[in-house]
Design a protein around this nucleic acid. Structure first.
Lengths: 232, 232
DNA sequence: CGCGGCTTTGATGTTCATCAAGTAAAGTGG
DNA sequence: CCACTTTACTTGATGAACATCAAAGCCGCG
């Protein structure tokens, strides 16, 4: 990982252009930019670990990340996949001093860091900005809770259908894409064993619902997946 | 349900004494109190429904509530149980215009309502208060996410152990208590069928781990439940 | 007092995890 | 760059855990 200081090219302008900081005035933006930095991470690099101390507020500029957590038996579960402009660890930043989750890059990623104290100082002066942050945090939490809810109420076929559609519709906006995660990680994401992920993907392939070649997945019958997902 | 206006006895002082509004000055508290009201609900009364419009910020003064949601097949799931001073629907208030969940009283309950616009106006002026709200919302979300996570990773025995300990340790702070929910609701809360809830409770009773008489549950061997909960 | 919902127990069946075993791919060190 | 090791992927067979179905007693409520 490489960290660049704030004054280098790119970083300042990214604070300025981020939708997260929309509504802040020139002075506030400049103040934030002075305490900010950016990190470049390669695919599969760990950005922070469960239980690491929270020092900075961070958000994803480019790439794709996974938020994961180990259960009592040491088995890993993926809580969420973060897309650009998602505030990462949003759920812990204001309430905890340590992360509840481990953050790992699924693709090469760029992350912007803002000093927490600086952010809080802006927040304490600018209530409107605070309200926006409340909305943002609230939405992020809702999303995690809802996704978990939906996945839990589906059988295995429904879960695979759900996640394939999620990738196609929300992340890649295309019916053909490279899966950002391995079969094993897919299992960790939707709560099933690797073997069953593979079995059901194969089944969908044989049934002509999808095409698979390695990590590339093409959805041939999205409507069919929608039905599966809804009913199961 | 009965709604009392702000100026009646009790309500104003409750805004003043609530930990949620700690740190607000006299003027701010008075402003909030002017737009506030309280509602009394009987056990099993519905306070709001999934998809109702959000008009007010509310928090539980006294009693116990359940937050529930129906899945696509119409099956009900309990997302969370709210205790006094929990901000209710906290997860939707700042991001949505409608509730994601249905709120129902599990015991006779008193709820305080604060006008959302009034709250936002305070928030926009008082950034420190906003930061506290961020922490609070963040904590509430964390709690829901963590609980769901833990329950999902346990087998049925572990889930029953978990929820019995949760009631005993976090809600009633006693090893003997009246279950606030029916067997059916227990199932909805920890994701299992009513039949299996009953089966496992009976098993625990036969094994001398608990005593049951109707809704009254006495935990005889809490250590045993802790072990069960951890390992399964 | 009778009806509907809650509770309980037993029998049955399905879904899914686990185990096993083999191939392919990807990373590692000499 | 090749041998080696590890990790990912795949398929099949088995068994356990859990849901579903059925039936009967219980309780509260109108």
């Amino acid at each position: 990982m490489i960290i660049q200081e704030a004054d280098n090219e790119g970083c300042t302008s990214c604070i300025y252009s981020s939708p997260i900081f929309e509504g802040l005035n020139e002075e506030e933006l400049a103040f934030l930019a002075r305490t900010s930095s950016q990190g470049f991470y390669r695919k599969s690099e760990v950005i922070f670990n469960e239980n690491d101390e929270i020092q900075r507020f961070c958000f994803l500029k480019l790439g794709l990340l996974k938020l994961s957590k180990k259960d009592e038996e040491g088995k890993c579960h993926i809580i969420n996949i973060a897309k650009p402009n998602d505030c990462i660890g949003l759920l812990s930043v204001f309430s905890n001093t340590r992360y509840n989750y481990t953050l790992t890059a699924l693709e090469d990623s760029i992350i912007y860091y803002v000093d927490l104290a600086a952010l809080k100082s802006i927040l304490s002066e600018n209530g409107q900005f605070g309200i926006k942050m409340l909305a943002r945090i609230s939405q992020a939490a809702d999303k995690v809770i809802n996704t978990t809810f939906e996945i839990n109420n589906k059988n295995l076929r429904g879960r695979i259908a759900y996640i394939l559609l999620d990738f196609a519709e929300n992340i890649y906006k295309k019916n053909i894409f490279e899966s950002p995660v391995s079969r094993k990680e897919l299992g960790q994401l939707i709560g099933m064993t690797t073997e069953n992920v593979i079995r059901i993907l194969s089944e969908f392939r044989k049934d002509g619902i999808i095409e698979i070649s390695g990590k590339t997945i093409k959805i041939l019958k999205p409507d069919f997946l929608h039905t599966l997902q809804r009913h199961a």
